[in-house]
Every structure is written in structure tokens, then in C-alpha cells.
């Protein structure tokens, strides 16, 4: 019965799309673009992936996968191990628990709630780093990072939506 095998393989590879989008964003975060001060304000790209897929297809991006993406981001970016893993997991948990309210809302509502969630993530990142160093760190890099992240969300959400309509819908 070869037909079901290829069919299942096809489905499996398509279902990897959310995970692969997060991995691509992970690499985009660390690649040197040689733009002045890019590293200072690089937006939290994997956060957008975790938020979107956690909201609309959390079955394709389960919690352990989110954990490993966060861990990989920590290890590649030089952040303390566990920091981004924890932040992404908490964002994922928040989004999944609020699916009931957010799932059928318009894009503007989803974007607005992303702003709130990303603010929480940014504050959490700053607080965790200050706590680990036991000093109050200057939050301004985090503020720029936050605004860039929420500004980029619509573009990325459009890409995810196209992915959902084309790669994931075909059965």
C-alpha cells in the first residue's frame, strides 16, 4: 500500500512548516546583517512564530518543540541558557490557554493581544537578566527591540497565514 505511505509522508513534511518557520527565524536572528547596530535591536522573531502557531495550530508546534527552539536560541545568541526557552514557553502557554477567546477574532485583535504578550515577554527578559546579574540593567535596548518586534508582526503573520493556506491546507 504505497499510496497511503506517500500521502502520510506528504502530510508529515507539510506539518513541519510551523517548526521550520521558527527555525528559519532563529537563524535570521543570529546572522550578521552588517546593518549598524542591528544586533542591538534585533527583534524577537521566534516569538512571533510561537505566538501565531500557538494560537492557530498549536497541534503542529507542541510545547517540547517550543522549549527546544528557545534553548537553541539561547545557545546560539549567547543569552543565559534557559532564558529564551522559558520566555517562549510562557508565551506559548498564555496563547494556548487564551485560544478560546482569540481564535476567531480579527487580525487587529490578534495583533493587539500580541503587543500585550510581547510586552510581557520583553519585561520578563529584562527582569530575568537583571536578576541573574543581580543589578538593574538599562532597559532601553529591550524597548527598541519590543517596538521593532510588534512592528514586524503583521508582515510575519501574513507569511504564516499564506503558509497556512497553501502548505498546510492541501490534503
Amino acid at each position: 500500500m504505497t499510496a497511503p505511505f506517500w500521502y502520510r509522508l506528504n502530510q508529515y513534511v507539510r506539518n513541519l512548516a510551523p517548526f521550520l518557520s521558527a527555525v528559519v527565524l532563529l537563524f535570521l536572528t543570529v546572522i550578521p546583517f552588517h546593518v549598524p547596530a542591528y544586533a542591538a535591536i534585533v527583534p524577537m522573531l521566534p516569538l512571533t512564530a510561537v505566538y501565531y502557531w500557538g494560537l492557530y495550530r498549536s497541534d503542529l508546534l507542541p510545547a517540547p518543540v517550543v522549549f527546544f527552539i528557545g534553548l537553541a536560541l539561547d545557545l546560539l545568541s549567547g543569552a543565559p541558557i534557559g532564558l529564551n526557552a522559558g520566555i517562549l514557553l510562557l508565551v506559548y502557554g498564555t496563547v494556548v490557554s487564551q485560544r478560546r477567546y482569540l481564535l476567531h477574532e480579527s487580525f487587529s485583535v490578534a495583533w493587539a493581544s500580541f503587543m500585550v504578550v510581547a510586552a510581557g515577554a520583553a519585561i520578563l527578559q529584562w527582569a530575568a537578566l537583571s536578576l541573574l546579574d543581580w543589578t538593574i540593567r538599562d532597559p532601553s535596548p529591550g524597548v527598541f527591540q519590543y517596538f521593532l518586534t510588534i512592528a514586524l508582526y503583521p508582515c510575519l503573520a501574513w507569511v504564516y497565514a499564506r503558509t497556512q493556506k497553501t502548505i498546510l491546507r492541501q490534503a
Binding site: 543570529v30 546572522i31 544586533a39 545568541s77 540593567r137 535596548p141 527591540q145
Partner: peptide
């Protein structure tokens, strides 16, 4: 150099 730090708080 092959990668920047992808974090606003780590240089």
C-alpha cells in the same frame, strides 16, 4: 565572524 549575538542584551 559568522554570527552576531541575536540578543539585545548580549554583545
Amino acid at each position: 565572524t559568522i554570527a552576531d549575538s541575536g540578543n539585545a542584551f548580549v554583545r
